[in-house]
């Protein structure tokens, strides 16, 4: 259980407060460039897959407001019939729950900057943006502008790519015929490879497969997502005894 107490987490090495400079924004943008290039095909792919199920306006609004690729791909497998609002919202939360840890790792480095500004820019933190920002912080460049730079280089591309892809995808085609269902599942199969860190991951994944299979066989609706996620989370704790 988390213990409630005043902050006593490891403070950054030097006591200097963080800055927020134009140079920082530029540096963040420059470092993010390679990731922006690879974000375009994923934005197009998401748009094309989403455009077969929803209007381009809806797909683009989702990319603009949610701005989280894996969660957006994840809900596509639920996007049918009367939309299951609870399952969709819960899936977005579960897939993105990793952000909690990522934000907590960055937070001490932004000491001295207004809390409201940190909470605003934190809302645009992606996996790549987080990794770039944290690396710079650990090198001693404690500048909130870097995080903003990573957002500037990703958000317009993700959102614009979605719009373009969705217009193509909405051209009245049968999503299955073109293998778009394989596209969605494939993005996840491949993300799983990207997440692999070592043998500690195997037991949680086996637990996730077992939990999901059981839920699909015996439970109605979309419980398999929650059960698969929780099975893996709990199995991840079993491996260790601290």
């Amino acid at each position: 259980m988390p213990s409630f107490r005043p902050m006593d987490s490891p403070a950054p090495q030097s006591a200097e407060p963080a800055t927020f400079t134009r140079a920082g924004i530029w540096r963040g943008m420059k470092l993010t460039l390679p990731y922006s290039v690879s974000a375009l095909p994923f934005g197009l792919a998401f748009g094309a897959a989403a455009g077969a199920m929803m209007t381009p306006a809806e797909a683009t609004l989702m990319s603009a407001l949610v701005f989280a690729g894996s969660a957006q791909f994840a809900v596509l497998s639920l996007w049918a019939g009367p939309l299951p609002l609870l399952a969709i919202t819960m899936t977005a939360f579960l897939v993105n729950a990793r952000h909690i840890v990522m934000g907590a790792a960055l937070q001490p480095h932004f000491a001295g900057q207004p809390r409201s500004l940190v909470l605003l820019l934190g809302g645009g933190m992606t996996d790549a943006g987080w990794a770039i920002t944290l690396q710079e912080m650990l090198r001693g460049r404690r500048d909130l502008g870097i995080l903003l730079g990573t957002i500037i280089m990703q958000w317009p591309i993700w959102t614009g790519g979605t719009l373009l892809g969705a217009i193509i995808g909405s051209a009245g085609m049968d999503p299955k015929r073109w293998g778009l269902d394989v596209l969605i599942a494939g993005v996840f199969a491949i993300s799983v490879i990207g997440l692999y860190r070592g043998r500690d991951d195997l037991l949680p994944w086996i637990a996730a497969v077992a939990g999901t299979a059981a839920a699909l066989l015996w439970l109605p609706g979309n419980w398999y997502i929650l059960i698969g996620g929780l099975s893996a989370g709990l199995a991840g704790l079993l491996r260790h005894d601290d």
Partner: peptide
């Protein structure tokens, strides 16, 4: 207010992976 312990961190990390695995399994 809250300390994010290594246990919580591991739980959250594996849970996110588990959701991805769940979607592939269901597909």
């Amino acid at each position: 207010y809250v300390e994010i312990t290594p246990r919580i961190e591991r739980f959250l990390r594996h849970m996110a992976g588990g959701v991805l695995v769940a979607i592939v399994t269901a597909a």
